Amino acid sequence: MVVWDEDGFQGRRHEFTAECPSVLELGFETVRSLKVLSGAWVGFEHAGFQGQQYILERGEYPSWDAWGGNTAYPAERLTSFRP
């Protein structure tokens, strides 16, 4: 999975191949867009795999509404991930 700290695949970029309990440890404040290259990941609103969670299947997510636009409580950012 590849993530960016700005919408539209802009800004700082990082690629994950294993779980990440906090993007803050990588110098990111948040993740605002992402691409899942294969498989599925779970993205969490807060560090430590806490808060609202989203199943992220293979594909592109250019902004928060692409992963959470249909929920009652959409998270505008993700800060931890698990494959």
Rank of each mutant, 00 (worst) to 15 (best):
Q10L: 04
S63G: 09
E60K: 04
G8T: 03
Q50K: 13
A40Q: 08
Q53I: 07
L24C: 15
V23R: 00
G59E: 03
V2A: 04
H14E: 04
P74K: 13
S63Y: 05
G11A: 01
S22I: 02
V3Y: 00
D65Q: 15
A40T: 13
E60I: 09
R32S: 04
W4H: 01
Y73L: 12
S22F: 02
R32F: 01
E57W: 03
P21E: 14
G48T: 10
L56D: 02
T71P: 09
F28C: 05
Q53M: 07
D7L: 08
L34M: 12
T17Q: 15
L56H: 03
G51C: 07
W64K: 14
G8D: 15
H14V: 12
K35T: 05
Q53K: 09
T17K: 10
E57R: 11
F9T: 00
Q52H: 09
L24F: 12
F9K: 00
A47L: 08
F49Y: 11
W41E: 01
F16E: 00
A40C: 14
E76P: 09
G27N: 13
G43A: 14
R13H: 09
H46T: 07
L34K: 00
P74R: 14
R58N: 13
T17R: 11
E25L: 09
R77H: 10
F81L: 10
D7M: 06
E45Y: 03
R12E: 04
H46Q: 13
F16R: 02
E25Q: 12
V42R: 05
G39H: 05
P21F: 12
A66R: 14
A47W: 03
E19S: 08
R12H: 15
A18M: 14
Q50S: 04
H14R: 14
P74V: 10
R13K: 11
W67K: 08
R32M: 01
G27V: 04
A66C: 06
F9C: 02
E15P: 00
T30Q: 11
F9H: 02
R12C: 06
K35I: 05
A75D: 14
G39D: 07
F16W: 03
A66W: 10
L37C: 06
A75L: 14
A72I: 12
G68M: 07
W41F: 09
Q53Y: 03
W41L: 01
E15M: 10
R32P: 01
W64N: 08
L24M: 13
R12P: 00
T17L: 07
L37E: 06
S38A: 07
D7Q: 12
E76L: 14
H46Y: 07
A40P: 06
M1I: 15
G51M: 00
Q10C: 09
P62T: 09
G69M: 08
L34G: 00
F49V: 01
R13C: 13
C20Y: 01
S22A: 04
R32A: 06
V23C: 07
R13N: 04
D7K: 07
S22H: 09
R77E: 09
T71H: 08
P74N: 10
D5L: 05
W67G: 09
N70M: 14
E15I: 09
L78R: 00
T17P: 01
E6C: 06
S63N: 09
G59F: 00
G11D: 01
S38E: 11
A40M: 09
K35R: 07
A66S: 13
I55Y: 06
G11T: 00
S22V: 00
V31M: 02
M1L: 15
C20N: 00
H14C: 08
E76V: 13
W67E: 04
E76I: 13
I55V: 13
G43M: 03
S63A: 08
D5F: 11
G11S: 03
G51D: 04
Q53E: 07
E29V: 03
S63T: 10
G11K: 00
R58H: 05
H46R: 09
E15C: 13
S22T: 14
T17W: 10
E6P: 00
D7G: 06
V3S: 01
Q10I: 05
F44G: 00
V42T: 08
L37T: 06
W4S: 02
T79K: 15
Q52G: 09
T79G: 11
K35N: 02
T30S: 09
R77F: 12
E19D: 08
E57L: 07
R12G: 07
V42F: 06
R77I: 11
A72P: 11
G69Y: 12
